[in-house]
């Protein structure tokens, strides 16, 4: 009764799933921007995107609460648009997961874009393909392994997110208590046996996801190598 752990598992997968979709779309875009477009201030953008990787979670939580809170830029906007505060909602947990996992996606996409032979892209342009078509047919397929790695890492990071989530989404039983937060509550209230059970199941789930993605990735890599030949 006290803990709805099934809910926590569902919520964690939901939050990590949505966050990973957002990270996939924006991360690929941002990496493309940083590698090929190089707008003015791209160095700064790169640093800003990497910071969540090195900052302690409490600091990320502080930044997020400043942005998403009622008085924050984003928080106020959401409040005006929807009439509902973003804080203490599963959506806030998605924001936290998104911010901490985006750097992983951007980094791994960037390095795979950088490793693509520019001659291939030049050939594509010379054969009359425009930017979008080249991106869709040449760059993206060639960057496949890197993007997949980014997706796996982002999803795993989102599943484990704790500090920033606690700050912006709160630890509300049955509403925003993801598995890491439920484990925190269990340990804090001395229910070690339950905590250990949840830890084991969560580790197993994470391992299964990694296994699936490794199999997918391996198959993908073999297919990719086959195409090369």
């Amino acid at each position: 009764m006290e803990y709805n752990l099934l809910f926590s598992f569902k919520l964690s997968l939901f939050v990590a799933g949505i966050s990973t979709i957002l990270v996939l779309i924006t991360g690929v875009g941002l990496a493309y921007l940083l590698v090929y477009q190089r707008p003015r201030g791209h160095q700064l953008l790169d640093i800003a995107l990497t910071l969540p990787l090195v900052l302690p979670p409490t600091i990320i939580g502080y930044y997020l609460i400043t942005l998403l809170g009622r008085n924050g830029v984003i928080g106020q906007l959401v409040l005006d648009l929807t009439g509902d505060s973003l804080m203490f909602t599963p959506q806030a947990a998605i924001c936290a997961a998104y911010v901490v996992s985006l750097p992983l996606m951007v980094k791994s996409c960037k390095s795979s874009f950088e490793s693509i032979d520019p001659h291939l892209l030049a050939a594509s342009y010379s054969l009359g393909h425009n930017r979008f078509s080249t991106f869709w047919r040449i760059t993206l397929p060639l960057a496949r392994p890197g993007i997949l790695a980014g997706v796996i890492l982002s999803f795993a990071r989102a599943l484990g997110e704790f500090g920033a989530t606690l700050m912006v989404a709160g630890n509300i039983p049955g509403k925003t208590d993801t598995v890491p937060l439920a484990i925190y509550s269990l340990v804090e209230s001395g229910q070690f046996v339950r905590a250990n059970q949840v830890v084991l199941i969560y580790t197993l789930i994470a391992a299964i996801f990694l296994l699936i993605s490794n199999i997918l990735g391996g198959r993908n890599l073999r297919a990719w190598k086959g195409e090369q030949r």
Binding site: T66, G69, R70, G72, S85, M87, F88
Partner: peptide
């Protein structure tokens, strides 16, 4: 405390 300071409901 920080959540309340930042307008948490």
């Amino acid at each position: 405390k920080m959540q309340i300071e930042h307008g948490g409901a």
